[in-house]
């Protein structure tokens, strides 16, 4: 474990010097958290046409203005699932290929470090900040939404315990899945650009949730969260194991000289 911490510390020292990376990593969540507030301040039934969505049975008993708020507030919740996927992808994509390109990987591989230790450290250093930032942004969003919501029942309709549970449990798992995928791509490619480009694919499955929720096909309740947490955590752990298995020390060295 000490070695994992040592690698994390080294990664941290390096990341601190990446001013642009730090700035954009912080800017993105600010934008994503700010966007809904800007939108909600002007959104009402007279300016927003929800079409058939407003007629979904789950909205019975709400006023048209309330329905618009519920739909928008709820849609933006999905952004908090986007963050743990998107934010760490740049760091993850850079993790191995960066050391390949700067030729620092060989001494690291020659040191008494197991592949799992290297990958765990590199994954954690990408996933941890993303998780913390997302949690913080969610806290800001859920508190801020109290002031924007036109009625108490809009708030309780959107900010359910299920969503709180989802953010607490899903976010770290999603971050680890995104990172493990990024690390796999990073280890298998010799071109930093390809790595960055390919890791963006992690956001695609999220759009499934986005549209499914919009269509009323998917309602995220406690049962859904409870039922998916274990598979997600297993998927996260499994991706890391797969990343370790796919990490071919020899191939990485030989392809790079």
């Amino acid at each position: 474990m000490r070695k994992v911490l040592a690698v994390m510390h080294k990664e941290w020292l390096e990341l601190r010097r990446e001013r642009w990376l730090v700035a954009t990593t912080l800017l993105m969540p600010v934008l994503l958290t700010g966007l809904p507030f800007g939108l909600l301040s002007t959104a009402s039934a007279s300016t927003t046409n929800l079409g058939p969505i407003a007629d979904l049975p789950m909205f019975q008993g709400f006023t048209p203005d309330e329905i618009v708020q519920i739909v928008l507030l709820r849609q933006f919740l999905v952004l908090f699932l986007l963050m743990p996927l998107y934010i760490p992808s740049t760091i993850a994509a850079h993790s191995i290929v960066g050391e390949k390109v700067s030729r620092t990987l060989e001494p690291l591989l020659a040191a008494p470090l197991r592949t799992g230790e290297i990958l765990l450290a590199k994954s954690l250093i990408a996933a941890l900040p993303a998780t913390l930032i997302t949690w913080l942004c969610y806290a800001i969003y859920s508190i801020g939404a109290r002031f924007v919501a036109i009625s108490g029942r809009v708030y309780t309709e959107v900010f359910t315990q299920a969503w709180l549970l989802a953010v607490i449990l899903w976010v770290p798992a999603l971050a680890m899945i995104s990172v493990a995928l990024g690390v796999i791509i990073s280890a298998r490619t010799s071109d930093p650009r390809t790595a960055q480009q390919l890791t963006k694919i992690v956001v695609v499955p999220l759009l499934l949730i986005f549209f499914a929720q919009l269509a009323g096909v998917l309602i995220i309740d406690t049962i859904v969260v409870a039922g998916t947490v274990v598979p997600l955590v297993l998927l996260a752990a499994g991706s890391l194991v797969v990343a370790t298995r796919l990490f071919d020390r020899e191939r990485i060295l030989i392809r790079w000289n």
Binding site: E18, L21, T90, G98
Partner: peptide, 18 residues
Amino acid sequence: ILRNENAVASIANVLLLP
């Protein structure tokens, strides 16, 4: 201008999202 791949990737990400 920046001569740093992480910086380029970061800017690309930030532009891409909006």
